[in-house]
């Protein structure tokens, strides 16, 4: 797999809250053009890992590299030095700490969606996507206020319309974002993430709360996004059908620890994964 370019790489990411290790020594990589899934039973630490990658949380230890350059890096400091329960505590101790806010990571090309949909409620569908374009502006505060940026604004509006056509929401563009049915809100959230022109799209449980039919539609939709935008995608998911259908590779975590990784076929037959999902009978 070395011939493919590395988009995202996690080295020994550990996330500890007080005495609880939510993510333990997680290392993984996502290569260009791949769809990679991160799965695990409830409370396994998937969303925590996601938040540590996107800058919402500061990982306790470990490094995240994006497009070959380190973007997030930390090692146990202060009080955490004594409390730290994970491994590799010394590995990054001499490297400078990197702790960017989420917007800096988005500016680099990481765009995400949320498990519980977070659209801007009072804004129209069109404006929701248009606001995401704000990041790409070249105009400053004054030129924007006094309309010195007409050409840019015009271009952005056209791009938004184009994007809405691709995701099939152009007929509801003037409606309030929250008035859309659930499935369309999901699609809008993905469109909003795509509007930032990302190099990596990160989907946090895109099929959460969807019925089987909606899930099928979403599966097709994600596949289409991949081919149309030549997008690299990392997704967290519960729905096994969706994951097995579209993923190139799968990482499985349980209690914060990586227990398996490989192609869908390998994962489906992995005894540890089956145990994690179905439980192991205790010999009492």
């Amino acid at each position: 797999m070395s011939e493919k370019k590395n988009v995202l790489r996690l080295d020994n990411i550990t996330m500890q809250f007080g005495g609880v290790v939510a993510v333990d020594d997680l290392s993984m990589e996502v290569n260009e053009g791949e769809i990679v899934a991160l799965i695990g039973p409830n409370g396994a630490g998937k969303t925590t890992a996601f938040n540590a990658i996107t800058g919402v949380y500061e990982p306790t230890n470990g490094m995240v590299s994006f497009l070959g350059a380190p973007v997030v890096r930390n090692h146990p400091q202060g009080k955490m030095k004594k409390q730290y329960k994970g491994s590799n505590a010394e590995k990054f101790a001499s490297d400078p700490v990197l702790n960017p806010t989420p917007d800096k990571l988005t500016a680099l090309g990481m765009a995400r969606t949320f498990q519980n949909i977070r659209l801007w409620k009072t804004q129209s569908v069109f404006d929701n996507v248009l606001i995401a374009k704000h990041m790409l502006r070249t105009s400053n505060f004054f030129s924007a206020t006094f309309r010195g940026n007409r050409a840019e604004e015009e271009k952005q509006r056209e791009e938004v319309l184009e994007l809405l056509k691709i995701v099939g929401l152009e007929d509801v563009q003037h409606e309030l974002a929250t008035s859309l049915p659930y499935g369309k809100q999901r699609r809008l959230e993905i469109a909003r993430a795509l509007a930032t022109k990302p190099k990596l799209l990160m989907l946090d449980e895109p099929a959460a709360g969807m019925n089987p039919q909606e899930t099928d539609e979403l599966t097709a939709f994600i596949g289409r996004i991949r081919s149309e935008f030549n997008m690299t995608i990392l997704l967290i998911e519960h729905h096994m059908d969706l994951v097995m259908d579209i993923s190139d590779r799968i990482y499985v975590i349980d209690f914060g620890k990586l227990i398996a990784n490989g192609t869908p076929e390998v994962i489906q037959n992995d005894q540890r994964v089956i145990d994690a999902y179905l439980g192991v009978e205790d010999d009492a």
Partner: peptide, 18 residues
């Protein structure tokens, strides 16, 4: 519009690069 996004949902606004 960015201001309104911050008002409506700060977390989403930050995740969208604001």
């Amino acid at each position: 519009r960015a201001f309104k996004a911050i008002r409506d949902d700060e977390v989403a606004a930050e995740a969208m690069g604001i």
